[in-house]
């Protein structure tokens, strides 16, 4: 388990061992969705908002 800081609230975000760049994780403190920009070491930022053409 890897831990890093939430860019929104500064709380601790726990990442599973198999986390991937591009994955979305939730901050359990403030609830914001965070995107893993880089995997090692972990770099997180706020996840993009939903776009109209997303999904299948």
């Amino acid at each position: 388990m890897t831990e890093t800081d939430c860019v929104e609230c500064g709380g601790t975000v726990a990442l599973h061992d198999d986390y991937e760049a591009g994955e979305i994780v939730d901050c359990e403190t403030c609830g914001v969705e965070l995107e893993v920009l880089e995997a090692s070491p972990p770099v997180l930022d706020r996840a993009p908002e939903l776009e109209e053409d997303w999904g299948e």
């Binding site: 198999d18 991937e20 760049a21 591009g22 994955e23 979305i24 995107e35 893993v36 996840a47 993009p48």
Partner: peptide, 27 residues
């Protein structure tokens, strides 16, 4: 090719890597 790694994609990535395939992620 991806812009977000969803759970589906993680499952695929795991399966590919477990079988020894080389995976190149392109954001």
């Amino acid at each position: 090719l991806y812009s977000r790694i969803r759970r589906d994609d993680k499952l695929l990535l795991s399966e590919l890597r477990d079988r020894g395939h080389e995976v190149r992620k392109v954001d």
